[in-house]
């Protein structure tokens, strides 16, 4: 799932490292401009490395935290089929986190460091996972909207200038399509069901629509890292462009379900072919990112507990490996 203007978070790129020469920087930019992929051990500006480490690790953290809202419904899925599907999807999210952590490690940051930054609260993750999943319909809405928004963001990342990130994204994008479809499938079934089921689907759309739009990050005029990320070809489209694309494809899907998009100002502009949408509540976005969303504390507490509860397993595996190695050496 889920990058979201992740490049927006954290400090702006610092000035070039003192040891980097203008020739090195120009040669690097030339490679990027020629659409050459940058590989792990290649020379790169420190600011490029830092930007990628921040974005990729935050993307990985988002996958890991993203398992929680869905895991909430695992034991209460309405059928064995839905439960098996949801379990597979959550397992994919763990896998996506692992692909991304390993890709980020090629930049010289350790896994332990990234995990420590998540647990200490230093590193951010996508704001969308700080919203609660109150009903089963939320699982449908997450697949359809949240994964749908993630796909919009992630498809251009498959062409990112950094090879290991681009390759991880190719793998992830192949799997996201299943995620989005299973979500929509849940909502199709609810919308074809009883009045109460349809109302549940509408309620989920009402709550997830705006947070999903926020996943694309701040509007272009307030986007502080965009220009540099574009020049480095880490990012290919602006936040607003991607958000617009998402709205354009998603509104007709809502109409098919017979659901109403909760935006009074939404209208189709026949001239441009795009939907015009209402004002996004950016204060809410800022608040949730700052840690004041409905579930921030709960998500972090659960992640820390899971990490602590798993300590004995990690220790046991290490002890077993050491014993085997000693026996082998003897």
């Amino acid at each position: 799932m889920y990058t979201q203007g992740l490049d927006q978070q954290g400090r702006p790129a610092a000035k070039p490292d003192a040891l980097e020469t203008a020739e090195q920087l120009a040669a690097f930019q030339q490679r990027v401009d020629a659409e050459e992929k940058i590989e792990a051990k290649d020379w790169m500006p420190e600011a490029y490395r830092r930007t990628l480490i921040r974005q990729m690790s935050q993307h990985a953290h988002s996958e890991i935290i993203g398992m929680q809202p869905e895991g909430n419904w695992l034991t209460r899925a309405p059928s064995l089929k839905r439960k098996a599907i949801l379990l597979a999807k959550i397992q994919d999210e763990a896998g996506h986190g692992l692909y991304l952590y390993s890709a980020a490690e090629t930049l010289g940051v350790s896994r332990d460091q990234m995990v420590a930054d998540l647990l200490s609260g230093k590193a951010k993750y996508s704001s969308i996972f700080n919203y609660p999943t109150l009903t089963w319909a939320d699982i449908g809405a997450i697949g359809w909207l949240v994964d749908g928004a993630a796909i919009m963001n992630q498809i251009p990342l498959c062409r990112c200038s950094y090879g290991p990130y681009a390759r991880a994204m190719v793998r992830i994008c192949k799997e996201e399509s299943f995620h989005q479809r299973q979500g929509y499938d849940i909502l199709v079934e609810l919308c074809n069901g009883t009045k109460e089921q349809k109302a549940m689907a509408q309620d989920a759309l009402d709550r997830w629509w705006w947070p999903s739009l926020m996943m694309f990050g701040p509007s272009d005029i307030n986007s502080k890292h965009s220009a540099q990320s574009m020049a480095w070809k880490i990012k290919r489209f602006s936040n607003d462009e991607l958000r617009q694309k998402f709205i354009d494809v998603t509104v007709p899907q809502a109409e098919f379900l017979g659901l109403r998009v909760p935006d009074d100002d939404l209208e189709h502009d026949a001239e441009t072919g795009h939907y015009r949408h209402g004002e996004i509540d950016w204060q809410e976005f800022i608040d949730v990112l700052a840690g004041n969303g409905p579930c921030n504390q709960q998500r972090m507490a659960k992640r820390r507990k899971a990490h602590d509860d798993g300590a004995w397993v990690r220790d046991a595996a290490s002890a077993y490996a050491a014993k085997q190695a000693a026996r082998h050496a003897a």
């Binding site: 597979a88 397992q91 994919d92 896998g95 692992l98 692909y99 390993s102 890709a103 490690e105 896994r111 390759r167 991880a168 793998r171 799997e175 990690r314 595996a317 290490s318 077993y320 490996a321 085997q324 190695a325």
Partner: peptide, 23 residues
């Protein structure tokens, strides 16, 4: 395909299977 962390070789194989060959 990528990389993974594991305590030993067998765990590395199992984790690689679960991470990179789910389909």
């Amino acid at each position: 395909a990528g990389s993974i962390h594991a305590a030993d070789d067998q765990m590395a194989l199992d984790a690689a299977r679960d991470t990179y060959t789910r389909r």
